[in-house]
Amino acid sequence: MSGTAFLEAIIDGILTGGVYALMAAGLTLIFGVMDIINIAQGIMVILGAYLSLELSVHFGIGLLPGLLITVPLMFCLGVAIEFFFMRRLHDEDRTKMSILVTYAVAIVIEGILTATFGVNYQQLSASYVNSSVYVFGFYLPDIYLIGFGMAIALLVGLYYMLYRTKFGRAVRASLQNRTAADLIGIDVNRVRTISVGIGVGVTAIAGVFFGATNAFNPNSGYDLISRLLAIVILGGMGSIAGAMGAAVFILVINDVVAAWWSPTWAPIVYFVALVVVLSIRPQGLFGRAAVRTQ
C-alpha cells in the first residue's frame, strides 16, 4: 500500500471518527447521567436518517435545514423514552435491565421502520454529498468535512454546556451524587430527562451524515450500535473526551485495515482490539477505574 493511500485512510478515519464521536457522546452522556446503556442509539441514528430522507424526498426540505425539524423530534423521542421506560428502572440491576429494555425499544423501532420503509437500502443525497475539495493532494468529500466540522462544533458545545453552564453543573452533580443533588434543590428527574433528550437528539444530526455516507436499511442499527458500544467502552463509559478519542482510534483502524487488507476484515480487527484492550484494562483505554461514589 502506498503512503498516500495510507495517509488518506487515516484522514478518512479521523473525519468519520468525528461523526461517530458525536453518536457515542450521546450514548455516553446518557450512561453518565442515568447509568443506562442505550442500545437503541444505533437504530435511532438510522431513524434520524430515515426522517431526513422523508423530509427531503417528500417535502423537499434539504438535509441540513431538515435538522431543525428532526433534532427536536428526536429530542422528544428521547424524553418520551426516559419518561416511560428509563425512569422506571430502579436500583441494583439498572444498567443490565436498561440494556434489555432499550434493546426492546430498538427492535420496536426496527419493526416500525421495516413496516414503513421495507428492507431496501437507501442513501441520502444532496449536492454536497458527492462533491469534494482538493487539499494537499487529497480529495476530501465535502460531506465528510461538513460532518466533521459540525460534530466537532457540537462536541465543543456539549463540553461547554457540561462544564460552563449551570445546567451542566446540575448534570454533573446528579451524575456524581444523586441524593446530594436532590438536597441542594436540583430537580434530578428533569436534568436526566433533558440529558437523555440531548443524547438522543444528536442522533438526528449523526443520522444525516451517516445516511449520506453509508447505504442503510432498518437492519443497520446492529452494526452501528456494536461500533458505538466498542467506542464508548474503549473510551471509558461516561467520558465524552474518551468517546472522542476512541471513536477516532477505532475508525482509523477500520479505514486503515480496509485500505490495507480488506474491508470485510476491518471490523474484525477492531473488535479483536476491543476484546484485547478490555481484558487487559477493563475500564477502557481512556477510562479511570471507579469514577463514581454513590
Binding site: I37, T95, K96, I99, S226, L229, A230, I233, M237, T264, W265, P267, I268, F271, V272, L274, V275, L278, S279, P282, Q283, G284
Partner: peptide
C-alpha cells in the same frame, strides 16, 4: 477472555465476540 471483565463491560465483550464470529 470475557470473564476477565464484569458488569456492562462483560456484556459489551460478549457482543464484540459475537460479531467477531459472525464476521
Amino acid at each position: 477472555i470475557a470473564l476477565r471483565t464484569r458488569r456492562h463491560t462483560f456484556v459489551v465483550v460478549t457482543i464484540a465476540i459475537f460479531f467477531i464470529f459472525q464476521l
